[in-house]
């Protein structure tokens, strides 16, 4: 194999045509035979947001201002995160016959899957706008942070997806482990609740959560109109870079071995 600069290799920058074709394949397979098509991408998180809203607002009587917007601005990125990690985990093993017949960078499969989910993520953003209109929330300039955080969450998902995907080649119960992790992770991350609702003594746990501060940021940007502090950005960035360095290292060590093991 010829030498490629690390970033070019990691993000498959020389294989844009490949990525584009894989993404368009994913989208076509997903939507070609469905009646509502892209609408499902919006409907699923939106309907679960409504369910959570009804339960927490009217049954459990949570008294948080603008609770529907809070749930939704967290749940939409969370839906992306979950789908990205799930398909990132499975795609290398799932494409075993392809990787065994064609010299293909395995990370291209993970990247294109996650990019497909990211497109869906972007397409479901209008729901947040709709809820803002309904709840008469005026978006502030702080909303710009939302888009930066989306980018960082994408990177974080790519790194984690690769790590899980490579591990899945070695341990076939990785799929269940990921499902289990995600179940707890959902409650350990401020998706349905605001981070300030967590007792002060436990708030440090947020920093130990790879996406904890990121999701706090989504709320800050969309609901609280708050600018994130430098330390918060630093933590998000540190997790992001750390995960991706680990993923890159793992990929470099394992990219030939996994194909022989598959």
């Amino acid at each position: 194999m010829r030498y490629m600069p690390p970033l070019t290799d990691y993000f498959c920058l020389r294989r844009k045509f490949l990525l584009q074709n894989l993404i368009s394949r994913n989208l076509k397979i997903r939507y070609r035979k469905s009646l509502l098509g892209m609408m499902w991408t919006v409907l699923i998180p939106a309907s679960s947001a409504v369910v959570y809203y009804v339960i927490f607002k009217f049954v459990m009587k949570v008294t948080v201002e603008n609770y529907l917007l809070l749930i939704l601005s967290g749940l939409i990125p969370w839906t992306f995160f979950v789908s990205a990690l799930n398909s990132g985990t499975e795609t290398i093993v799932g494409n075993y016959s392809l990787l065994n017949k064609v010299p293909l960078p395995p990370q291209a499969l993970v990247l294109s899957d996650i990019m497909t989910h990211f497109l869906n993520f972007m397409l479901s953003l209008p729901v947040i706008a709709v809820v803002m209109v309904i709840t008469e929330t005026v978006p502030g300039v702080t909303l710009l942070q939302y888009f930066v955080l989306m980018g960082l969450l994408f990177l974080q998902s790519y790194g984690l997806g690769l790590i899980f995907g490579i591990s899945y080649v070695y341990f076939r119960d990785m799929r269940f482990v990921v499902a289990l992790i995600l179940q707890f992770w959902f409650y350990l991350t401020p998706v349905m609740y605001a981070s300030h609702m967590v007792p002060e003594d436990f708030r440090f746990l947020l920093w130990l959560n790879p996406v904890g501060v990121t999701f706090e940021g989504f709320h800050a940007a969309a609901v609280d109109h708050r600018w994130l502090g430098a330390n918060e950005w630093l933590i998000i960035l540190a997790w992001c870079l750390g995960t991706n360095f680990l993923a890159y290292g793992l990929l470099q060590r394992q990219k030939y071995r996994i194909i022989e093991l598959l």
Partner: peptide
């Protein structure tokens, strides 16, 4: 590398669409 013809063909896509998919998988440009 034609170890298998039609590597990566997606069954739900048309033959025409698969031409592009297959060529991109084999590493050729648009």
């Amino acid at each position: 590398p034609l170890l298998e013809l039609g590597a990566g063909f997606a069954t739900e896509l048309t033959g025409y669409e698969n031409i592009f998919l297959n060529a991109s998988i084999l590493g050729f440009s648009r």
